[in-house]
Design a protein around this nucleic acid. Structure first.
Lengths: 238, 238
DNA sequence: GAATATCAGAGATCATACAAGTTGAAGTAA
DNA sequence: TTACTTCAACTTGTATGATCTCTGATATTC
């Protein structure tokens, strides 16, 4: 009997309904990437709503990266970029950034990255290898005092290892984590001096193992590298 | 010299500037979670913009989960929920869903989940254990023909294992993957009959290993379980 | 005191107008 | 013809004012 008086509620606003409709169309590939949407005025007529309501729906869709709005020319269905999808994760991490998070990140890396290195050793292409090699060279050339750049290069290296697995899911899982590393740098590398040679050597060892398709070796080298990071961090915390 | 004639571009629209301003305030904790924002009209005066521009900025912020808008009462800074942050990742996966993605997901799970199980065995609390136990019970009770519910329960079990690690980053990394599993079910479990007993037994074994804090055992059981999934999937593809 | 009615303030929607960027076709000069 | 200019007809962006609906607090009624 209860159903009779079930919720009618203002379930969602008009603009939300519009948003859903368009989102669904995109999800179901009824609107393909690159498609130009009808103009605002046309959509208003089609949905029979005001421009205000319609535009707010469009603003939300563009905020989420589903469509791109170009002033003066029109609106287009855009390919949802990984970066867009990860953006909000980054924000989330950003807002909950604390020392707890740092150690949790290291723990995750300690567990996942060696496995990733192993798979990368099996699947890497020559292009992957070239990219990794470039990272190593950049790292060696880099000004030892420029810890910012050093950290950036190292992050790129690790991300490239993930890419070398050829597994998209792997990349997406790790990317938000790597994007946080630059912030950790200030804490971690602050008290470390003159260890750059060691860092270069360690990363070169990872590279070589991947190059030679030595999965087990890649696993070990990566594990060792992260253990070292963990050590430095623990030391710093004291 | 090129910089002289570098882009001037329409840097950003007015509503985007407003969005940034408010976002920055939230990021820098100048606006704390739960804070009620000034009303639309007030904000218009403060920023010296029209309600149109302001509202579009607010729509974007709410679409991203940074603020919550309650009709009739006001706008509030909201705690960015993990679910919101993961939403767009889900969408991304959704749009790029194909058989390639399925095998990549299984590969990732095969690598990550046993490690997760090992850590869970070390860190699990009694509450975690209770939740896992409930999942097992539900799975056993579940109607064997209701593959939908069965898959849901299994997913919850795996997510609860991730939660038992006590590592937030671990959960965030795995959650989007689990959320895709229901879609895979249709493909994977479609051709499997009368194996429910085995499934229950396998998951109970994982549970018991975690309960007894047998990390290595948990690792093995989880690996075995996913190997089996992989097998079924491979078999189905033929 | 409790149920009801009223009302002010909030966001939601609408309609209209104008500003400003983009595009392409028509027009013009060489 | 060819290259360039101009301009008109689009597009989205911003502004304004009116109205609708929901919410929560206050006032009223019994």
């Amino acid at each position: 009997m209860d159903e009779i008086f079930g919720k009618i509620g203002t379930a969602q606003t008009l603009s939300q309904k519009i948003e859903r409709r368009i989102e669904e169309a995109i999800r179901q590939k009824k609107l393909l990437v690159g498609t130009k949407l009808p103009s605002e005025r046309e959509l208003c007529e089609m949905f029979a709503v005001s421009r205000t309501a319609l535009r707010e729906a469009l603003r939300r869709l563009s905020a989420r990266g589903l469509i791109q709005i170009k002033k003066g020319s029109g609106m287009f269905v855009s390919e949802l970029k990984i970066e867009d999808a990860i953006e909000s994760l980054n924000l989330y991490y950003d807002l909950s950034f604390d020392s707890d998070l740092i150690s949790q990140i290291i723990e995750v890396r300690r567990v996942f990255e060696p496995e990733i290195a192993r798979i990368a050793a099996a699947n890497r292409t020559d292009e992957d290898l070239a990219a990794l090699n470039r990272n190593i060279a950049d790292l060696a050339d880099c000004d030892p005092d420029n810890t910012q750049m050093e950290a950036d290069i190292i992050n790129k290296f690790h991300l490239n290892v993930a890419k070398a697995t050829g597994n998209k899911v792997m990349i997406i899982s790790m990317e938000p984590i790597y994007s946080l590393l630059p912030r950790m740098r200030n804490l971690i590398y602050a008290n470390v001096d003159g260890e750059k040679d060691f860092t270069v050597k360690a990363h070169r060892a990872i590279y070589e193992a991947i190059r030679d398709k030595e999965g087990e070796q890649a696993y070990k080298e990566m594990a060792g590298q992260i253990d070292r990071t963990l050590e430095i961090y623990t030391q710093y915390l004291k």
